[in-house]
Amino acid sequence: MPDAASPLVRELASLARLELSAEEAAGFGAQLETILGYIQRLQSVEVEGVPEYLTAEQVRSGLRDDLERPELDAEQALAGVPVVRDRLVAVPRFKD
């Protein structure tokens, strides 16, 4: 079983862009350990030769024609953006 203590939680939080207080990290670490312990039971299932489940497997192709379908105008879409500068969505400056 993986060590679900703080370093792992820190790594996961970093991947998921979640800031965690020390207290949160400790709490989540303990809970993840319990939950992962429970999930370990899956390791006992015989899955040799079993394919992964195909989600949304069905008859319909699910493809669409290449036709424009005006849904909402750009102004409406931009209305909910927290910070806009000259029609552009603004965030704190970052380097490429």
Binding site: R85, D86, V89, A90, V91, R93, F94
Partner: peptide, 13 residues
């Protein structure tokens, strides 16, 4: 596409 200017990075989708 992102461009960078002043204190902001600006995104065009």
């Amino acid at each position: 596409k992102s461009t960078h200017t002043g204190e902001h990075s600006l995104v065009d989708y």
